[in-house]
Write a protein that binds this DNA or RNA. Structure first.
Length: 937
RNA sequence: GGGGACGUGGCGGAACGGUAGACGCGGCGGACUCAAAAUCCGUUGAGGGCAACCUCGUGUGGGUUCGAUUCCCACCGUCCCUACCA
């Protein structure tokens, strides 16, 4: 054997070095030739559209990453590889595929980095993006790089600001259930077509009053909301930066809750539509459930309980149980408490109700103080034991006139419903618990079943002790009670949501500035579109500035003093304005990036309407949107809810063609890896752990193994670079796709990567001679049997790839390749070519290389995916299993089109079957054509 | 407490209600090699039998069915989300 390799390895073996050479060669060629550039029907990127004009389109997208400085591990690209394989497969089946990548690049880490190093966030961010782009390119992802965006690009966030203005300049018309321009509302007010809620006339209002009225309607509006103000750091902190003890994570300084005027988004107006449209999109049921839970719609009634001169309004989902309401509870911070509390304890007040205080005022004050001081940890530690105090007042149950005591307790939350409840211990477990502690009466109003042994009964049953409701089931009783209350003006059927309006201001530097200024009177003024973008000021003083507790919170942009005020002529002559100093949250940029992928170079509009229709309309009659969106389940609620909300606003205003952004969502699993803890519970470097006889040792000491998400904290990261060096990018891609179904978590096992490498080596060897580098392919016709295997494989691989079942597709391809390996002679070209085509989407570099060596001229990327010839899928004779009494006992060989009678006769004649039947009579005979025979005796 | 997902060899995982364990890792045996690695061939659920074969096997217990890993009910366990939401 002639070999020039000193270690005896054949010179043309597919190993890591050759893989590296091949991968770099093809990546360079793809870049030079713009292989992955996808044409638009119109506009700046429309060159070459003729080529694809007749093809169906496909829009495949990943959740774009934050460009972190710490680099990738092998868990990160799992979803990116999945979408890439799918996108490549769809290209080869004749689709015009839009597939690119972007960077969600605003955010805290870059700002923190700037504070520590003085390096500007933009420089840091751009460096990180460059690193990440190179890492992703090395994987061979087929992205149209011309369409890449970063949310921090001025040309991008200009349009984020533009969308903000669209939302700001609109209101939700509840009658039409859609957003409309605010100008139309103003016109209706001015003409009198619509009355103001408080009966005033629009013409009588001054400028400030008009601003205030419209602020109450706008979908983006100003409201006072509490922020975490840390005077020692001179900054406002995000919730995540505040410890459970209410101190700053950095420096451990005290943090104070302070109200600050902030931007809110009226997402609650869209609550119903956000729930309803879930029915029309193809997402995992679990994610839909999370969104429904988050929105938290509950149907019920608001009921008014007179209490002295006041009226306590409660929300309940169980108006049918009103006869069982024996006391009331309001949240400690409820505004009515001060008005309601009695001066002295009424006669007959039980000791347990007073908290040992002399007056209701003392009891309320102390309870409020205690409740406010409790942290989440305290509450959990106490096991949620019910606490509360009587406030000395009584309310009247509107259905039976009974006087019932009013308590405050922290198990009633100000933020949900009306902040007050009617307590029905008979049908509510929390109320039962409270009633037992405070010795309050319990009246059952639903008859529990006879075998019911618990306390509060929350199930269905006939109403009892409930006057006119008695005998009705829960649903009927609810309806009857709501009708009764509405007739008497004591209540009304309502719907409540857990969803809150979206707090949209952040007191940070590294985010999108608002396109808003304030006039001298403090009114917000939207900048006209011509003045966009509002760019972030570049010069920022990062040094900490210590302030005292009484000083006002100041966002970082307040330090850009030259920028913070601006002279503009907005139609009334040059005037000085103050700029909005807050920035938008990181969600803003990620709410709409899919739209910019469509038309990234457009400077006139956010996205060309024709291009938008082309990419976002579903040809199969679906609701439309991105055809496939892949990402982690951690974004199941916030990002996906916010993006759906923005999209619906844009839809209402006519800027996009459909009501949903993402028609199909797929959540990929996580790659986990073994992590090891020493005796102290500290994680040790997983790479340095040895396994010996089932024991795990680190520096000779035993450690325990667990599995967790790959990452720095568990010290179990494996980097792609390691994998490139040992195996190559194609092998890494293949292994990640082969590990298991894309939506499942799976443990990483570096030694198993070998298996994927071996497959590629065997494929290579079936086409290329390892010693000479010559082709080992013949033009001879493959055997009938091999052709059958080939076409069965094509059939299975096609359907697996279309359904994102890459693991089984790879298994089928492996089987086919094993057939070729077993072959004694050279590989028939008629098998080698379709094999290489099928590998194209999975391992694009080696496939392109083999494609070229096979003498093909065009790019494999746009070659057609093989199609199975149905003639080879049907067999002449088939092996049919024969069951006796449901157990597999034998198999018979029959013609594929044999009649039931023929099959039955063959089965009954089979010696093993006869033996198993043991001379017994046939009771039943099941013949499933093409599947099996079952004989019941 | 509520919601969701899931339980199959030593490991990752395959199986339109129809031959359980495809494909791969690891293990074992062999070829090649002075040797090792790499590569190649064979074998590998458990138990029994010289063998052909037989028995048992998809978390547990029921149910539906000629037939259940698959559908239904209950329980046990794991993971994720959410949480005093009235």
């Amino acid at each position: 054997m002639t070999t020039d390799a000193p270690d005896g390895i054949p010179p043309h073996r597919y190993d890591a070095a050759l893989a590296d050479e091949i991968e770099r060669k093809w990546q360079a060629r793809w870049r030079e030739q713009g292989t992955y550039e996808t044409p638009n029907p119109v506009g700046g990127l429309s060159a070459g559209f003729d080529r694809v004009a007749g093809q169906p389109k496909l829009f495949v997208m990943d959740m774009f990453p934050y460009p972190s400085g710490s680099g990738l591990h092998v868990g990160h690209p799992l979803g990116y590889i999945g979408t890439d394989v799918y996108a490549r497969f769809m290209r080869m089946t004749g689709h015009n595929v839009l597939h690119t990548m972007g960077y969600d690049a605003f955010g805290l880490p870059a700002e923190e980095h700037a504070r520590q190093t003085g390096q500007h966030p933009r420089a840091n961010t751009e460096a990180n993006i460059a690193t990440m782009r190179a890492q992703l390119l090395r994987l061979g992802l087929g992205h149209d790089v011309r369409r890449e965006i970063a949310t921090t690009d001025v040309g991008y966030y200009r349009w984020t600001q533009w969308i903000f203005l669209q939302i700001y300049n609109s209101w939700y018309d509840r009658d039409l259930a859609r957003a409309r321009p605010i100008a139309e509302l103003v016109a209706e007010f001015a003409s009198g077509a619509r009355a103001l809620e408080d009966g005033r006339s629009w013409g009588d209002l001054d400028e400030g009053e008009r601003h205030a009225v419209l602020n109450g309607y706008r979908l983006a509006y100003l409201d006072e909301a509490p922020v975490n103000w840390c005077p020692a750091l001179g900054t406002v902190l995000a919730n995540e930066e505040v410890t459970a003890e209410g101190r700053s994570e950095r420096g451990d300084h005290p943090v104070f809750k302070r109200p600050l005027k902030q931007w809110m988004m009226r997402i609650t107006e869209y609550a119903d539509r956000l729930i309803e449209d879930l029915a029309h999109i193809d997402w995992f049921e679990s994610v839909k459930a999370m969104q429904r839970n988050w929105i938290g719609r509950s149907e019920g009634a608001n009921v008014r309980f007179p209490a002295g001169s006041a009226m306590i309004e409660v929300f309940t989902t169980r108006p049918d149980t009103l006869f069982g309401a024996t006391y009331m509870v309001v949240a400690p911070e409820h505004p009515l408490v001060d008005e309601l509390q009695a001066d002295a304890w009424p006669t007959g007040t039980r000791d347990a109700w007073t908290g040992a205080h002399d007056t209701p005022a003392d009891a309320v004050d102390e309870y409020r103080e205690e409740a406010a001081a409790k942290t989440e940890l305290d509450r959990q530690a106490e096991g949620r034991e019910k606490t509360g105090v009587f406030i000395g007042a009584f309310a009247t149950n509107p259905v039976n006139g009974k006087q019932i005591p009013v308590f405050i307790a922290d198990y009633v939350l100000m933020g949900y419903g009306t902040g007050a409840i009617m307590a029905v211990p008979g049908q509510d477990e929390r109320d039962w618990e409270f009633a037992e502690i405070f010795d309050l009466p319990i009246i059952r109003t639903v008859q529990p079943p006879e075998d019911f042994a618990g306390d509060a009964y929350t199930g269905d049953g006939p109403a009892i002790n409930s006057g006119f409701l008695d005998g009705l089931g829960v649903e009927d009783a609810k309806r009857a009670m709501i009708a009764h209350l509405q007739e008497r003006g004591a209540g009304v059927g309502t719907t409540t949501y857990k969803l809150r309006d979206w707090l949209f201001s952040r007191q940070r530097y590294w985010g999108e500035p608002f396109p808003i200024v304030y006039d001298e009177a403090g009114n917000a003024v939207a900048l006209p579109h011509e003045l966009l973008p509002v760019e972030l000021p570049e010069l920022i003083d990062w040094a900490p500035r210590a302030l005292d507790e009484d000083s006002d919170p100041e966002p970082p942009l307040g330090r850009a003093t030259e920028w913070a005020t601006v002279e503009l002529d907005l139609g009334e002559g040059p005037t000085t304005y103050r700029r909005e100093l807050n920035t938008m949250p990181q969600w803003a940029g990620s709410c709409w990036y899919y739209l910019r992928y469509i038309d990234p170079t457009n400077t006139e509009v956010v996205v060309d309407p024709e291009a938008e229709r082309y990419w976002m309309t579903d040809a199969h009659g679906g609701i439309g949107g991105v055809d496939l969106y892949v990402g982690g389940v951690e974004h199941a609620v916030l990002h996906l809810l916010y993006a759906r909300f923005w999209h619906k606003v844009l839809y209402d205003l006519g800027h996009v063609s459909g009501p949903e952004p993402f028609q199909r969502l797929f959540n990929q699993g996580y790659i986990q890896a073994a992590a090891y803890q020493d005796a102290r519970g500290v994680y040790v470097d997983a790479h340095a752990v040895e396994e010996r006889d089932g024991e795990f040792l680190y520096e000779g000491q035993p450690v325990t193994r667990t599995f967790g998400k790959m990452g720095k904290s568990l010290k179990n990261s494996v980097t792609p670079d390691e994998m490139y060096a040992r195996f190559g990018a194609d092998t890494l891609r293949l292994y990640e796709m082969f590990m298991g179904p894309l939506d499942q978590d799976r443990p990483w096992e570096t030694r198993s990567v070998t298996g994927s490498m071996r497959l590629l080596q065997r494929v290579w060897r079936n086409v290329v001679d390892e010693d000479t580098g010559e082709l080992t392919v013949s033009d001879e016709e493959p055997s009938e049997g091999l052709l059958r295997v080939l076409h069965r494989t094509i059939d299975a691989v096609r359907s697996d790839m279309g359904a994102l079942r890459f693991n089984t597709a790879i298994a089928r391809i492996t089987e086919l390749n094993n057939e070729l390996t077993k072959l004694d002679g050279p590989t028939p070209r008629a098998v080698a070519e379709p094999l290489v085509r099928m590998l194209g989407p999975l391992v694009p570099h080696i496939a392109a290389e083999l494609w070229e060596r096979l003498g093909q001229e065009g790019s494999l990327v746009y070659a057609s995916f093989p199609e199975a010839d149905p003639a080879y899928l049907v067999e002449d004779t088939i092996e049919l299993p024969v069951h006796v009494n449901g157990k597999m006992r034998s198999s018979i060989s029959v013609a594929a089109d044999a009649s039931d009678q023929t099959i039955t006769a063959a089965a009954l004649a089979d010696p093993k079957v006869i033996e198993r039947m043991d001379g017994k009579e046939v009771r039943k005979l099941i013949v499933v054509p093409g599947r099996l025979v079952n004989i019941v005796v």
